[in-house]
């Protein structure tokens, strides 16, 4: 377990690459009422791996857009206006691309690294696990 904890503290990526780490971070974000940021981050990764020829991919893009971008969700509120416009434009023209959520994901990731992740490493949830 010690190795786990050292790895989780190394970077957000190493935390999220580990099943137990991602689960514990999710529990923490649920309590902080911003679990959507993590779900969005994973949804972007999942979307990037999808086949653009599959009709399902457009439906998933629409679902991500509706759930996280076009409302006042915790994700939408943290994204730059230009980033939201870009995604909205892609959706309007139905021009789906594997990288269409990359900028939005990068913005959310930076915010998670600077805020939620730092808070997590000093939280009782993490320290109790230690």
């Amino acid at each position: 377990p010690d190795l786990h904890l050292v790895r989780w503290a190394k970077s957000l990526h190493s935390l999220l690459g580990d099943q137990d780490g991602a689960h514990l971070f999710r529990t923490f974000l649920e309590r902080e009422k911003c679990v959507d940021t993590l779900d969005f981050w994973f949804a972007c990764n999942g979307f990037r791996q999808m086949d653009l020829k599959d009709t399902k991919t457009l439906r998933v893009a629409k679902a991500i857009h509706k759930r996280y971008i076009e409302n006042y969700s915790v994700v939408a509120r943290q994204l730059k206006l230009a980033t939201k416009f870009f995604i909205r434009d892609c959706m309007k023209r139905q021009q789906i691309d594997s990288t269409m959520f990359d900028q939005a994901q990068a913005e959310i990731q930076t915010l998670m690294e600077d805020n939620a992740y730092q808070m997590f490493l000093t939280s009782d949830i993490y320290l109790d696990y230690v």
Binding site: Q19, D39, F42, G46, K56, R59, V60, R67
Partner: peptide, 20 residues
């Protein structure tokens, strides 16, 4: 047809780390 929520959940789950 899967609902929007199911599709989204499936997409999120596909990217979650698997048990080593």
């Amino acid at each position: 047809i899967d609902s929007e929520d199911d599709l989204l959940q499936e997409c999120i789950s596909s990217a979650m780390p698997k048990k080593k």
